[in-house]
Write a protein that binds this DNA or RNA. Structure first.
Length: 187
DNA sequence: GCTGAGATATTCT
DNA sequence: GAATATCTCAGCG
């Protein structure tokens, strides 16, 4: 099992290929991002504990769910010892069970888009703000180990404005559920 | 396939 | 009041 008391950049690549089950849907994680807390200006926890990010300061192996742009629910897995404030944002996954349920929630979209992007993943798995603090190996969430270590790569994070060059995004190359999002620097 | 702009709630200053 | 770890849509090749 993964040691969630390690730092987020250590845990992140270990999550790739693992499956996460919640509310009747199972996905295989294909893309995650590490947020390093106080030393990382892009992290919610950069400025210290608030009511919103409190879950990230808890012990590793729990969920941190937040509302993004007022619309989307995104899920993180808390990393590092209690009080540090690190976590891994779940960016994308591949639905491998509960397909019909995921399609009901997401509507008529291609398979690869069912859980593509943090907001879509949250909708497919039906993340709720009340799921904060839930253990990832508890009754509500089930994180299962992967059969073997998949090939993975790392690169810059996406959708943030601060510290965007740090190579803290990890994904499985070639997987159709991982998109190279638009807005790459032209030129 | 790609691009640009609007929507929407909570949080922080 | 401004910002945000985003998604979807319309328009164009």
């Amino acid at each position: 099992m993964i040691d969630f008391s390690a730092t987020a950049d250590i845990v992140a690549p270990q999550l790739l290929g693992c499956t996460l089950t919640h509310a009747g849907v199972t996905v295989r994680l294909t893309e995650v991002e590490a947020y390093l807390g106080a030393e990382d200006p892009a992290a919610h926890t950069h400025r210290g504990v608030t009511d919103r990010n409190r879950a990230m300061f808890g012990p590793g192996g729990h969920m941190y769910i937040y509302l993004s742009y007022g619309i989307h629910r995104a899920g993180n897995i808390v990393c590092a010892p209690e009080g540090v404030g690190q976590g891994c944002l779940l960016r994308a996954g591949e639905v491998i069970d509960g397909l019909e349920l995921a399609q009901e929630r997401r509507g008529d979209v291609p398979f690869a888009r069912l859980a593509q992007g943090p907001g879509n993943l949250g909708q497919a798995l039906n993340f709720q703000l009340t799921d904060n603090f839930s253990p990832v190996t508890g009754p509500d969430f089930r994180l299962s180990p992967r059969p073997g270590e998949p090939e993975w790569v790392r690169g810059p994070r996406i959708g943030i404005s601060k510290n965007a060059d740090a190579p803290l995004r990890f994904w499985i190359p070639g997987n159709k559920t991982v998109s190279v999002r638009r807005g790459r620097p032209r030129g």
